[in-house]
Nucleic acid binder design. Structure first.
Lengths: 223, 223
DNA sequence: GCAAATTAATGATTTATTCAAG
DNA sequence: CTTGAATAAATCATTAATTTGC
C-alpha cells in the first residue's frame, strides 16, 4: 500500500461516490473502518483479549527496579516491538509545553529537528511525534478554550490572573497565545516518504525572521 | 517535481502488520474533561521577582521513587560547591540554545520561571542564570557574527547545502553531502524545508554551522 | 492488594477547509 | 475554475489512570 498522494485522489473519487467499491480501498491496514451507513454494532465486541497477549505486562509492574540501567525516564517502556506509539516522558512533555508557552505552534522542519534531537536525550522520539504533539496540543487547547468560554464566559472572576511579574525592569505582560487563525505563513515544509529516490536537495534553513513570529518576543533595552 | 508528498506516511509503521485487529471497542463518550487534576508541576505563579527565581525546585514527579538523576546527563556537580557560579549541564545548555534558536532573546519573567522550573530538573539553576544566559548569549552571538562577517567575505562554493533533514527513528547512517550510492529506502519521516524564495543571505551559511555546534548529537563532554 | 473492566487522555490518521497561484 | 499546499477539525486507536469486584 505504498500509496502516495492519496488524499487528492481520494477526494476526487469519493466526493462523488463515497460508497462505491472503490471507496473500500481503505488505507488503514487494520481496524476496519466502519462506514456510518453500514456500521455494525460495535458495542463492546468482547472478542479475544489479544490485548493481554500483545501486552503481556498487565501483571508485572515495575516496582522501581534498581537494577535497570539508569532507569532514567519516568515511564515510557522502551520496548517498541513493531511500533507502538510514542509515549512521552515527563521531561519531554515539559519541554514541549515550555516551547508551546513560549509561543511555538507549528514548528518548521528545522525546529522540529532540533527539538527532536533535544528530546531524544530523554526518551525515544522522532520528528513526527513532535509535529503531532504541536498539532494536537494546539487543537485541544483551542477546544478547551472554547468550552471554557461557553461554560463560564460570564462573571469572569479573574480566573486567569495575568501575573504582573517583575523581573528587573522587563516586567512584561505576555500576551496570551492564540495567534490569529488566519496567519498563514508559507513555512512550507512537508513530510516526505523517502521511498523512491533522493529529491534534488535545494533547500536551506535559516529563517530568523520567521522564527521571530513564532516566539513573541519583547525586545527591550538592556537594563 | 514529482513530489511524493504524502500525508499519511506512517505506512511504514504498519508495514509489519503487527497483529490482528483486536476488537477495537468504539463507543467512547469521552466527556470534555477539564482539570485533569494531575496537571504537571506548573506551579501556579502569581507574582514573583528575580529573587523568587531562586528556588531549588527539583521535586520529583515520578511515580517511581527510585528516581535518580541519570549521571550520564547530570554531569555537573550536584552539590552546590560553595558559592560558585552556575555550572550548566548539557541538557540545560541544549534547551537554552534550542530556545534561542527558536527566536527567544529576552524572555520575560514568566517565561524565565517556566524555563527555570524545567531546567531545574537537570541541575541546580536559578532564574537569574537563565536571564543572564540569554543576555550573554545574545551578545556573544553578535560578536561572533561580526567576526565571521569580516573574515568570511567570500561565500563558500557549497551552494547546495544538504538540508533535507532526515529524521529517523534509529541511528541511521546519514550520508554526507555527496550523494552516496547508498540510497536506502528508509520508511521514516523526513522533513523537507521548501523555500519559496531564492535565499541569498550569506549569513545562512554560518547559521547552519552554528546549528551544528549548538546541538551536538552526543551528550557528552561538558562537565 | 490485585487485576479485569472501564474511563480519561492523548498520540496518530484521515477528512474538510482555506488560501494562493495558474 | 482548477489545483495544490498548508492546516484545522474530526476521527480513530492506544495507553495511563481509575474504578470495581474479588
Amino acid at each position: 500500500m505504498g500509496n502516495m498522494k492519496v488524499h487528492q485522489l481520494a477526494r476526487g473519487l469519493w466526493e462523488h461516490e463515497p460508497s462505491l467499491s472503490l471507496g473500500c480501498k481503505r488505507l488503514r491496514p487494520l481496524a476496519p473502518k466502519l462506514h456510518p451507513s453500514s456500521s455494525p454494532d460495535h458495542t463492546s465486541v468482547s472478542s479475544f483479549d489479544l490485548k493481554t497477549f500483545i501486552r503481556p505486562e498487565s501483571g508485572p509492574r515495575k516496582l522501581c527496579p534498581s537494577d535497570d540501567k539508569r532507569d532514567s525516564h519516568s515511564r515510557q517502556v522502551e520496548t517498541h516491538p513493531g511500533g507502538t506509539r510514542w509515549n512521552p516522558t515527563q521531561e519531554q512533555i515539559g519541554i514541549l509545553e515550555m516551547l508551546y508557552r513560549g509561543g511555538m505552534r507549528t514548528p518548521n522542519a528545522q525546529q522540529i529537528e532540533q527539538i527532536t534531537a533535544q528530546l531524544g536525550k530523554y526518551g525515544k522520539i522522532e520528528g513526527k511525534n513532535v509535529f503531532y504533539w504541536f498539532q494536537n496540543h494546539k487543537a485541544r487547547e483551542r477546544q478547551k478554550q472554547k468550552r471554557n468560554s461557553l461554560g463560564l464566559s460570564h462573571s469572569p472572576r479573574n480566573s486567569a490572573p495575568i501575573t504582573t511579574i517583575t523581573l528587573d525592569t522587563r516586567g512584561e505582560v505576555m500576551e496570551r497565545e492564540e495567534d490569529s487563525p488566519y496567519k498563514r505563513k508559507c513555512r512550507s515544509w512537508s513530510f516526505e516518504y523517502l521511498e523512491e529516490e533522493s529529491r534534488s536537495s535545494s533547500s536551506s534553513q535559516e529563517e530568523e525572521n520567521r522564527t521571530l513570529e513564532l516566539f513573541p518576543l519583547h525586545p527591550e533595552g538592556r537594563s
